[in-house]
Write a protein that binds this DNA or RNA. Sequence first.
DNA 1: TTTGGCCATTTTGCATGCAGAATACAAAAA
DNA 2: TTTTTGTATTCTGCATGCAAAATGGCCAAA
Lengths: 226, 226
Amino acid sequence: MAKLQEATPIVRRPLHEEATDRLRDLIVQGRLAPGERLNERLLSVQLGLSRTPLREAIKVLATEGLVELLPNRGAIVSHMDAVRLSESLVVMGALEALAGELACINATDAQVNEIRALHYEMLAYHARGDLAGYFKFNQAIHLKIVKYSGNTMLFNAYRQLNANVRRARYMANLSRERWDAAVREHDEILAALGARDVKRIKALLSDHLAHKLASVLAALPSRQAA
Amino acid sequence: MAKLQEATPIVRRPLHEEATDRLRDLIVQGRLAPGERLNERLLSVQLGLSRTPLREAIKVLATEGLVELLPNRGAIVSHMDAVRLSESLVVMGALEALAGELACINATDAQVNEIRALHYEMLAYHARGDLAGYFKFNQAIHLKIVKYSGNTMLFNAYRQLNANVRRARYMANLSRERWDAAVREHDEILAALGARDVKRIKALLSDHLAHKLASVLAALPSRQAA
DNA sequence: TTTGGCCATTTTGCATGCAGAATACAAAAA
DNA sequence: TTTTTGTATTCTGCATGCAAAATGGCCAAA
C-alpha cells in the first residue's frame, strides 16, 4: 500500500511557536514600538491564547535580543539605538562576506539563478522607485546568499542579527544616490556569484555592508535629534 | 540623608533565568548527553522549581541551539554532529578574526594585559600537561578577545556558537604536536594584539580557527565510528 | 520470533489560580 | 503648588490542574 499523506504530517503547531513568530513580526514591523511594554494579559487576549505560551515566546524573543526583560516588571521591546544598529551591521558584514565565499563554492547553478531572478525583480522595483518593494527583494537576496552558503549555523546567526536590524530599516531613509549605488553593487555581487569569484564576492559584500552602515550612520543623527 | 544600600539592589534572580543557566551548564559540561530526553517533571524536581519556569528555560536553550524541541514529545539535548561542529567553527573563525581587528583598535592597554596574564596562566598549564586547565584559560582568552572588541552584538553571537562547540571539545582530543602548535599560535596572537597589528591578528586568528577546525575534523571520524 | 492492536500510564501543552512586587492614585503635609 | 505617604489596583512570576498526545506493555495473530 502506498503511503498516502506522506507529505502531510498533521501536527498542530505549538501555540508558543505561533506566538513567537507573531510577536516577532509585530516587533520587526514596528507595530510594537521600541520601549513599549509588553502587557502579558493584554497580548494574550489579542493573540488568543493564555499567558503561559505567551511568556515562553517573550523569553525566546529576549534571547534573540528583540525584547528586554525587566525582572518583576515584565518586558519591553528593546531599543534600537545607533550603537546596537552599527554593531549589528559590522557583524553582519563579516558574516555576509563569509557567506558569499561559501555560496560561490556551494550554491548550485539553480540556486544562483533563483537569486538572479530575485535580483531582476528588485531592479524592477528600483526602476519604479518603489522603496518598500525594493527592500523586500533586497532582503530576500541577502538572505538567500547566506542560506545558499550551505552553513546552517551561519544562517541562524545572520537571521538573528537581521531581525534586529530590519526594525530600523526605515531609519536608513537612503538617498537616491546611495540607492542607485547599492543597486550597482548588487549587480556586481551577482556577477561575482555567477562567476564563482570567491575573492571578489567577499570584497564586494564587505564593501556593500560597510556602505550600508555608513549610510545608516549618516541618516541616524538627524533621527536621534527628533 | 545619604542613600544607604545604594549598591545593593536586592532583587531576587528570576527562577527561569537560574534554571536556564543551570541547564545550560549541565548540557555544556556533558552531564546531559546529546540526544538525552529532558523530562520536565524530573528536571523540575532536580532543580527545585516547578515546570513553568523550567519550560521557559528549555525554550531559551532551544533558540540557543543547545536543545531541540520535538512537538508534543518534549525536548532533547541537541546532537553535536561533525557538520554542525565544523559549521560553527567556520563561523567562529570569521567572528574571531573580526573581533581581533576590533580589539586591536578598541581594547585598552589594561585589557590587553589582562589577556596577557591569562596567556601566561595558560602557558603554565600547558607546561604541566594539564589539558583541562589549559582549555579553561584558552577559552577565557578567546572570550576576552571577543569581549574587548567592544562589540556587544559580536560577543553575543560568538558566545552562542561557543556554547555549542564547548560541549564537543573533548572530541578534539588534540595531539601533542597540535597542542604545541596552538600554544605558539597564541604567542603570536598576543604579540599582534600588543602591537595593535590589525592585519596580522586577523590573519592569525583566522588561521588559528582553521587549524582548530582541521584538528577537530581529523579527530572526529574515529569518534563517529564509536 | 515478529507484528499489530488495544489499553494503562506517562508526559507534554496549555489554562488558571495565587502570592508578592510594582504601579497608580488620592489625600495629607510642606 | 509641590512633595510625601498610605492604599487600592494591576501586573508579573510561579505553581498547579487538566485535556490531549505519546509511550510502554500486554496479548493475540501471523
